[in-house]
Amino acid sequence: MTNLSPFDIQARPNRLLAQALSAVLFVVCIGLYMQTSIARHRENPEDRVVPSGHQLLAGVRSAVLEPAEEDDYIAPDNASTWERLRHSMIWKDTASSGKRFFISLGLLIPFVVLAVHIGLFPWFGAGFLRFFLFFDKIVALSLLPILFIAFGIDEWSKIALIVIGVAPTMILDVTQMVKAVPQEQIVKAFTLDANNFDVAYRVVFRQVMPQVINSLRLNLKPMMLFLFAGEMIAASDGLAYRIAIMRRHMGMDVILPYVLWVALLLFLIDFSLRTINRRLHPWFQA
């Protein structure tokens, strides 16, 4: 029989109860939000700080169906929902933020390859490891003025911010993974007549790949953080740009859906990486 025993490590709550418990905090959050919103709207029917469900719905509709700027393409009145969506604010912002995000993701690949070399080849380790250990401790955001000089204020400074922010951590992480590959595996590969690059790419890289993907999953949030920082400082479109602009006039009715949308996107990327990892590396446990 299940007793209510939150401080019992050996407790076995039944399934239904566990499910219900996991929903509690969500319900509390939504409840608190609604309560606050209702209270504030009783006082000021036009309150924007904690928009009501109705306002949120209007905000979502305008984000999803209406163009961002006055001068953007405006769909004709009889346009289909799909066409409106294609030219909507959220579509435009997601596309431009997504572009920056995926370019940076792509730029991380050479760094991962470099990390495999650093972990495996003593000469690379000697040349790069200390530098990246040092560089990892640099707070990337503080380099922004330098990034502006080096990359201008367009796309590249934002992408560089993400890469500089995330790459050293990734490099150190992957280097550790490579060093954790048992020496036996490397010796064994050499006795099977593998050359250096066989060992690097066909033994070690293959083995750390699932861990690299996991590390990337953990780094998604920092990447998003850096992207947001970049977009909030200088941009003309993007998800964080919109949030920054909406803040100017307390557009919480648009900001909140945007925040949830970003959370959903991050979850989806994380989920698909996890799925890919499981499909591609059935041998990898945990």
Binding site: P182, E184, Q185, D193, N195, Y201, R206, Q207
Partner: peptide, 24 residues
């Protein structure tokens, strides 16, 4: 760690002869 965990038994067995003639 005597076998490559990311390869099937067959791939483990074939790895030696194949790499020695066909590098990366």
């Amino acid at each position: 760690y005597s076998l490559f965990p990311d390869r099937t038994v067959l791939d483990n067995l074939m790895m030696g002869p194949l790499t020695s003639n066909y590098h990366i």
